[in-house]
Amino acid sequence: MKDEAYFKQLAHQLMFELSDEEAADIKKEFETLNKQLELLENVNTEGVEEMVYPFETPTSFLREDCVENVVSVEDALKNVHKSRARHVLVPKVVK
């Protein structure tokens, strides 16, 4: 059984923190989830292909080599909190 510390560590890898209460709640949720997963395990899937999309129709095509749907630098920066010289400004990375 995974403990709260395990889930806090997992959350950290996902780039957010869990409160003690949230970690305890996830631990409890996993108990229910594990029981539900038994229902999944009951199904024999030997030789069955994964279903990734509802239909088997192709979803990728070669298109004409022309420029379209371009986002300008100005537009791309409109939602950025800080920018400088047409770039996103973030805290210094190299120390």
Binding site: A11, M15, F16, L18, E21, E29, P91
Partner: peptide
């Protein structure tokens, strides 16, 4: 102070508890 900390602080405050739970399960 760092890019990583900006992401962690923003995602910690920005997501509700249920979303965090679902991301943990998905991951």
């Amino acid at each position: 102070k760092s890019c990583e900390d900006v992401m962690i602080a923003s995602r910690t405050e920005g997501f509700g508890s249920l979303i965090k739970k679902r991301f943990v399960i998905g991951s």
